[in-house]
């Protein structure tokens, strides 16, 4: 590129930029991302779940996961605990969704709770990934690309729901294993995920996330007293595609009710915003200190005068 053409190019760019900048538009950008409007979701109604684990079986089949340790109709899994009885089952590399049983404090019928990726509107796993292995698709799924994953497992640290699992057993191609909303095989074709299709009780309702929130409110309105007045996932960590209704307080059935309402990313923004400032200010600041120190040195005494000059020639 010759100098003239480069100059012309620059001039054109500046003119174009100025035109865009000066155009009297009043459209402001949204401060936060609240999910694609056409994003799909699932409403999980805990009052409907009977713990049949058809969803687990359907997921296992759809995602071609390995044979479980116990058949999917074996209720013994509900009595399994881990880490000294403190933990119930969780998602693993072999199971992208699990259903756990909880005994409510008031002694009523046991409550079953399904765990899987909640497909956040602004996912922490995605924002924490330094190789951009995660994508929030327009359909609402949070999908993962194992081809670029380095295996730092920051996403697992960041996930507020402890969902991503890692195939630690693999030496040469370990990767994150988590629910991907059956994105490739079903969601993209307009089909509900396999677990939803497999649920006999329609404890899982598939639909646009916006519609599901209306449906959830409708259920609370039509059946007063049946539900806790809260849609879990509507606001939690910026909103999730999978939302929940429950008859018992959410904390009694394994939900973390202390989560913030803002996306996890908002915690990190404080630091991220200092980065460009440090990059911009530090060079001048410390070069300035250096000049001041040097100046002082030069005037401190004849003995030291040449040292620095000599050193930094």
């Amino acid at each position: 590129m010759s100098k003239i053409s480069r100059r012309r190019f620059l001039a054109a760019s500046v003119a174009g930029g100025a035109a865009i900048t000066l155009a009297p538009t009043k459209k402001a950008l949204a401060a936060t991302f609240e999910g694609y409007s056409e994003g799909m979701g699932v409403l999980v109604d805990l009052t409907r779940c009977v713990g049949c684990r058809s969803c687990e079986a359907a997921c296992n089949k759809e995602q071609k996961l390995p044979t479980p340790d116990l058949p999917f109709d074996d209720p013994a899994v509900f009595d399994q605990t881990f880490h000294g009885g403190t933990q119930k089952r969780r998602t693993t590399e072999k199971a992208y969704t699990v259903v756990n049983r909880y005994e409510p404090k008031d002694g009523s019928q046991p409550v079953y709770r399904k765990i899987q990726c909640n497909h956040c509107n602004e996912p922490a796993c995605l924002t924490s990934c330094f190789v951009n292995a995660y994508t929030k698709t327009r359909e609402g799924a949070v999908v993962y690309n194992s081809k670029v994953c380095v295996g730092c497992r920051n996403c697992m640290v960041a996930c507020p729901f402890n969902v991503p699992a890692y195939s630690y057993s693999s030496a040469f191609n370990p990767m994150i294993k988590k629910c991907i909303f059956c994105h490739e095989t079903r969601l993209k074709q307009g089909l509900p995920p396999a677990c939803v299709a497999g649920c006999p009780q329609e404890a899982l309702t598939f639909g646009h996330r916006n519609s599901l929130i209306k449906i959830a409110r409708e259920r609370m309105r039509h059946q007063p007293g049946r539900y806790i007045d809260h849609i879990y996932g509507e606001k939690e960590v910026g909103g999730t595609a999978w939302i929940y209704l429950s008859a018992v307080p959410f904390e009694e059935v394994g939900f973390d009710t202390t989560l913030q309402k803002e996306p996890i990313l908002s915690n990190v923004k404080d630091f991220l915003s200092t980065v460009p400032m440090v990059l911009a200010i530090w060079p001048a600041l410390f070069s300035g200190f250096h000049l001041l120190a040097k100046h002082k040195e030069n005037h401190a005494g004849d003995d030291h005068q040449n040292i620095d000059e000599e050193a930094h020639k």
Partner: peptide
């Protein structure tokens, strides 16, 4: 894959 964030795939909004 350690060089991936430098050369292959970029997640510039991530602290890591």
């Amino acid at each position: 894959r350690l060089p991936y964030p430098m050369a292959v795939a970029f997640g510039p909004a991530a602290v890591l």
